[in-house]
Simulated scan of single mutants.
Amino acid sequence: MAHQGQVQPEQVDAASVPVADAATILLLRDAGTGVEVFSIRRAASMVFAGGVIAFPGGGVDPSDYDPLPAAGPDGGEWSRRLGVDAPRAQAIVSAAVRECFEETGMLLTSPAHSMSYDGGPDRSLWAPWRSRVDSHEISMGEMLRDNALVADTGRLVELSRWITPVGPPRRYDTFFFGIELTSGDPHEPDGHCGEFDDSGWSRPKDMLDASARSEVHLLPPTLAHFEELAAADSVRGYLDREPTMAPVNNDLPGQIRRPPHHS
């Protein structure tokens, strides 16, 4: 995605800001010190949430309604799991796959349908395609079909749903997904994205401690997920819990917390 310029508050009528769908991805791995998550710091120049610690993701693009060739749940199953109609659910899942590719370089494809050298996908092969998808020259669906690839949407695990309160110049109905990364994944996420000025693997407790010292700024959804991850014994244990997909309309930032998972 391209950089957005700063918008001054007087340019925005807060009550008229539409709520757009979005997808956010938590890339997770087990480490000797516990669960780690790939987090980013959004560039201060961003219109929405500039300077905050967050996770990769972004708004649903019209191109995301172009169905992906995928090996995973169908539209009806995603509709049930996300609580929205099938076309909307499929677009949200497509956005998650696309944003993961654009912002981290992680191409979620079925192992049987991958551009591969020496048993693993070669990142140099898809770099030009990543740029074309990011610049909206082609859709994610076109990129996959042109390369005979199949998105492995079965790796996505729905976690939660948050709605931006009234006030910011942009509002989102954001669906959070978790993805477990293992030693079988040939590449690390790279965070090479113009929307970030820093990125890397984080220990949730470290981020919570830094937030308590006011060293980093965490929006309520990010804080809630860090709290959950800090209490998790493993990535698999975290992802296997029943998600709470009732939308959290966080009208009181810093006071409302996401309802807990049910075991």
Rank of each mutant, 00 (worst) to 15 (best):
Ser131Val: 12
Asp122Thr: 02
Phe177Thr: 12
Glu180Gln: 15
Leu156Glu: 11
Asp198Arg: 15
Glu188Phe: 12
Thr24Cys: 09
Cys100Arg: 03
Arg130Cys: 05
Asp21Ala: 07
Phe176Ala: 15
Leu82Ile: 11
Gln90Asn: 07
Met106Glu: 09
Phe101Met: 13
Ala224Asn: 15
Trp78Ser: 12
Tyr117Asp: 13
Asp118Arg: 00
Leu27Ile: 06
Ser45Arg: 09
Asp173Asn: 07
Ile179Lys: 13
Arg42Gln: 03
Pro62Lys: 03
Ala70Val: 02
Ser16Glu: 14
Leu26Gly: 03
Arg213Gln: 15
Phe55Thr: 02
Phe196Cys: 01
Trp162Ile: 05
Phe55Arg: 00
Pro18Ile: 03
Pro220Val: 09
Val157Trp: 10
Thr109Lys: 12
Arg80Pro: 02
Tyr172Arg: 14
Asn249Ala: 14
Tyr65Ser: 06
Arg213Ala: 14
Asp206Ser: 15
Thr24Val: 10
Ala91Ser: 13
Ala54Arg: 03
Asp190Ala: 12
His187Glu: 10
Ala89Leu: 00
Gln6Met: 02
Phe55Asp: 00
Ala86Trp: 01
Phe196Gln: 01
Glu36Asp: 02
Leu239Ile: 07
Ile53Asn: 12
Pro87Leu: 06
Gly83Leu: 06
Met140His: 02
Glu103Asp: 10
Gly120Met: 08
Leu149Arg: 06
Ala44Arg: 03
Arg80Thr: 09
Arg41Gly: 00
Val157Tyr: 12
Thr174Ser: 15
His217Gly: 06
Val7Asn: 03
Gly51Pro: 07
Met1Thr: 01
